Simulated scan of single mutants.
Amino acid sequence: MKTIRTLGLAALLVVGTAVPASASSLGEVRVLAHFDRAAGQAAESIALEPGGGVVIGMIPARQVVRVAPDGAVAVLTTMPLPPGGGGTTPVVGDPVVTGVARADSGTLYFLYSSGQGGLTGIWQLPRSGAPRLVVPLPADTMPNALVIDGPRKRFLVTDSAGGRIWQAPLGGGRATVWSADPTLAPNGFFGANGMKVHDGAVWASNSDRGTIVRIPVTRDGGSGRAEVRATGLAGIDDFDFTDRGDEILAAINQANELVRVNANGTHDTLLDAGDGMQGTTAVAVRGDRVYVTNGANLAGDDPTLMLARLRR
């Protein structure tokens, strides 16, 4: 495999013989945008926009940025440091912007974790004007992934420090714990991390335990019995479904990999450090396009947004 360093350079992935014939693969991989690691732009999360643009949360720059389809990067907001300069955020220390989400209306939301009440929680980014806090979260939480559950008109948020999933009304207000199942708990560092709603369930990754967990949504919107669907994924961050049943593409932060997780829980590597993966953090799939962010927060110094073609 060729190392991807410049915009427009593509690499063809060869699928190994152990991969099921029906599995998805990738091709036409290129770097869409480079970010400024020296300025703290470690790309952490992805929200897709119409037309091929994306919105990304940046840690520890405390920024939300937009990447246009041509790769141009624009900073939408930079969150202020908390009083005293921060340093009390659970697990990570410094204040960080993590998950981002886009409502069907076009409104953008993002998570800010500061270790202080009145700042930590879900923020709305208006089309004009300053961001505003719409869902406060406790100071001891480390909100990480943000999902809009449209049919139930609510936000869902993973808490990596507390090993929980929170819910809150989409219109804003008080958050409550949706699930505190032991499968979400950390084991020394990060617990529940990435999250998606898929096929009647909430799916979450657990970084410390290297697992993907499926939690059914009950008829009244509550959480059912959790089930571990994949193991052996130490350092897993965000993930997304390929629209081929329960097939998943997952970012493995610590190993600098993008892996495919098959419906039976087995997995294989599609991209690694030789392809430009550096602290891989997030994946988002739309049609045959796969967007991947590299934070370069544990390895390397070149955070990027990469774009690949999904072959089904």
Rank of each mutant, 00 (worst) to 15 (best):
D268N: 12
F110V: 04
G200E: 11
H198L: 02
G121C: 05
L13K: 06
D199L: 07
G71Y: 01
V228P: 01
R5I: 10
A103Q: 08
L233V: 10
F110D: 01
S45V: 09
T266F: 05
R132A: 05
P60N: 14
T120W: 03
L81G: 09
L184A: 11
V15W: 01
V202C: 04
R260C: 06
I248Q: 10
K2Y: 00
G27A: 06
W203I: 00
L26C: 04
V134T: 15
A21N: 11
R289S: 14
P83K: 14
G279E: 02
T77P: 01
G87W: 00
L133C: 08
V157H: 03
I212C: 07
P80N: 07
N297R: 07
R225Y: 00
M79R: 05
T218M: 13
A47P: 09
Q167I: 00
R152N: 12
S22G: 13
T183V: 12
P90Y: 15
L108V: 11
A101S: 14
M306N: 05
R309S: 13
T88L: 08
S179W: 06
R229L: 07
N256I: 05
V283M: 04
T218G: 07
Q124S: 15
V213H: 07
A192G: 12
V147N: 02
A296Q: 04
R260Y: 08
G276T: 07
A23C: 05
P90N: 11
P216K: 03
R225P: 01
T17R: 08
A39W: 10
P131S: 12
T141M: 09
T98I: 04
T107K: 09
Q167W: 06
P95A: 13
V134H: 01
R174T: 15
D301M: 05
D94T: 14
G115H: 00
G295F: 00
N262S: 09
G27H: 03
R214H: 11
P182C: 14
V197H: 09
R132I: 02
T231W: 14
A168Y: 13
L146E: 02
L258G: 07
L146G: 04
V54W: 11
V15K: 08
D181W: 02
G300I: 10
D237M: 09
A299P: 00
H198T: 00
A201D: 07
V97Y: 01
G53S: 15
A308E: 03
P95D: 10
S25N: 13
K2D: 15
A161R: 10
H198W: 15
T107N: 09
T158E: 04
G224N: 11
P126N: 12
S114M: 02
R164I: 05
L12D: 14
T304L: 04
D199T: 08
K2S: 15
N294S: 13
A273M: 01
D246L: 15
A308N: 03
G295Y: 00
L133H: 05
I122E: 06
G221R: 01
P126R: 10
V261F: 12
D104I: 06
F189L: 12
D268K: 01
A250D: 12
G191C: 11
A39I: 01
S105D: 15
I46N: 03
V177E: 07
P131V: 09
G150P: 00
A230V: 10
D159N: 08
L170R: 03
L258K: 03
D301Q: 13
V197K: 07
I236T: 10
G16Q: 14
T266A: 15
T77Q: 07
F35P: 01
V259N: 03
A103F: 00
Q278L: 11
D238F: 03
